[in-house]
């Protein structure tokens, strides 16, 4: 049984990691904490639902198109709303609470838009993946296999993109120091849009991947945001490997907690882990000395 719980925990955890990765990417690139990221995840899931159940695309294409749509949505949100705030004060950073409140406001707006379009009732995405996979003693539904494989593949692609392409190099430069990146001839505002788009596409992938095993509903973003946030902090805020590690730890910890201690308190375990990690290592597991940012 332990192995079953472990692999389920890892699958859920890697989804937390995927969303946390976007939050960390935005934080390291734009120096803002994006509190509407859970809603992007929710929109991704709904995009998946519409594309798969109503438009009749197959699952991989649904995943791909939902990611593109959420990416475009992210770029528009950043350009139209956040850019006004972040470009004040001469830089790309907003001191104080402005950006945080703006993020929460955006979350509420997106939730209500989703409510207007899709209503309050949750519905599952009816994907027929076929028979579960047998791995030794473990029986694993194929939806979990998809989660693990696609998430790992996305993370690998992101890593290769950031480490081995010219654009990835420029994004890392923008994350480290925007003025210097500008002086190198990098179009910094364009890179910021790109970072936002990629982060939102990752969240949407998480949404489409979770849709076959969870109900897709308007409120699903909120809990995901909090878990992904916990994951990002556990791993070290702004650290990309940290976000993945934190996600996996949160997923495994809460699944094992739910299985062996008490299932009705499932959502508490993530935060117990968070508190524990912050007590022992305030910067998070892979975090370096924190950037002081609002």
């Amino acid at each position: 049984m332990l192995y079953d719980f472990l692999i389920v925990g890892l699958s859920i955890g890697i989804l937390y990691g995927l969303v946390a990765l976007g939050i960390s990417l935005i934080y390291s690139g734009l120096d803002i904490v994006h509190f509407a990221h859970g809603e992007i995840f929710m929109f991704g899931a709904f995009f998946g639902l519409v594309l798969y159940d109503e438009a009749g695309f197959n699952y991989p294409i649904t995943l791909f198109v939902a990611m593109i749509l959420a990416g475009i949505m992210g770029v528009i949100i950043e350009r139209v709303f956040y850019r006004r705030l972040t470009s004040q004060g001469g830089g790309y950073t907003v001191a104080g609470m402005g950006m945080i409140i703006c993020g929460f406001g955006m979350a509420i707006i997106l939730q209500n838009i989703a409510f207007l379009i899709w209503g309050a009732n949750g519905r599952p995405m009816h994907v027929n993946f076929g028979m579960p996979v047998e791995l030794g003693t473990i029986t694993l539904p194929q939806s979990y296999v998809w989660i693990l494989v696609v998430s790992v593949a996305l993370m690998a692609v992101l890593h290769l993109f950031l480490k081995h392409t010219k654009l990835g190099l420029a994004i890392r430069a923008v994350a480290a120091n925007k003025d210097i990146a500008y002086l190198m001839g990098v179009n910094v505002p364009l890179m910021i849009s790109l970072i936002f788009g990629v982060a939102c596409a990752l969240a949407a992938a998480g949404g489409v991947l979770i849709a076959p095993i969870n109900y897709v509903q308007v409120e699903m973003g909120y809990l995901m945001l909090i878990k992904a946030f916990a994951a990002a902090v556990v791993g070290g805020f702004g650290s990309l490997p940290g976000a993945i590690l934190g996600g996996l730890m949160v997923g495994v910890f809460e699944t094992l907690g739910a299985a062996y201690i008490s299932g009705s308190h499932k959502d508490i375990y993530a935060f117990l882990l968070l508190i524990f990690v912050l007590m022992v290592r305030p910067t998070g597991l892979l975090g370096v000395a924190a950037k002081v940012k609002a």
Binding site: L169, A170, A173, A176, N177, G185, V186
Partner: peptide, 19 residues
């Protein structure tokens, strides 16, 4: 002091050629 300390020497140089 405004090099990118977290990048390699060659990455820094290639960044200079970004345009």
């Amino acid at each position: 002091k405004d090099s990118y300390p977290g990048m390699t020497v060659e990455e820094n140089l290639m960044l200079g050629a970004f345009s």
